[in-house]
């Protein structure tokens, strides 16, 4: 539930894949020419690296700097977007911690719910993510009903129903899709 642009991520992966494959083709140029390009009737002019003079080192430096800057930017900004503010309007802002408190109060004494954490994200509009950790083998329908009731009460107490995503989990790492066997 972060801000990262998921289409851009796909695009970046495709571009980097093409870069890697192009590098491979360049290294294996004689074979690629003989077995792929010539049968197709294609002729690729030589890059003329040897005659490039100082252009080659400068180009390499520029390319390296660009890639490092992009890599740093992606690494540093990855997963951003949680800012702890649940709502900000007309000079009034409410921290996610307040809503977390309201929900926890309502779910207090529900022994199938072990933990509740609420975070606020800015992902094209504000959205709240409530992570509800339940006991293994919990009665899911009951948990859902109790969380719904708690949210309804919290909405009333706050005075507004904010966009909310509730994630019910056992706290273990979510695996990739596929079967997981659970008692």
């Amino acid at each position: 539930m972060t801000r990262s642009n998921r289409i851009l991520n796909r695009l970046a992966l495709v571009l980097l894949a093409l870069l890697a494959l192009t590098a491979a083709a360049f290294i294996l140029r004689p074979e690629v020419e003989r077995f792929v390009l010539e049968p197709l009737g294609l002729v690729v002019p030589s890059l003329g690296l040897a005659e490039a003079g100082t252009v080659l080192p400068i180009a390499l430096i520029v390319l390296a700097v660009v890639v490092v800057i992009v890599a740093l930017a992606v690494t540093v900004t990855r997963g951003r977007g949680a800012d702890g503010t649940a709502l900000d309007q007309e000079g009034v802002s409410v921290d996610a911690g307040l809503l977390e408190g309201l929900l926890r109060r309502e779910l207090d004494g529900e022994d199938e719910v072990l933990h509740l954490r609420l975070r606020a994200f800015r992902a094209r509009g504000r959205v709240l993510l409530a992570e509800v950790q339940v006991r293994r083998g919990a009665d899911l329908a009951n948990v859902h009903r109790r969380v719904s009731a708690a949210v309804a009460t919290a909405d009333e107490q706050l005075g507004e129903a904010l966009p909310l995503v509730t994630h019910i989990t056992t706290g273990l790492r979510t695996r990739f899709a596929g079967s997981t066997r659970t008692h």
Partner: peptide
């Protein structure tokens, strides 16, 4: 000129 209220917690 302007007043802002931030509600922190319960």
């Amino acid at each position: 000129a302007n007043a802002r209220i931030r509600v922190r917690s319960l």
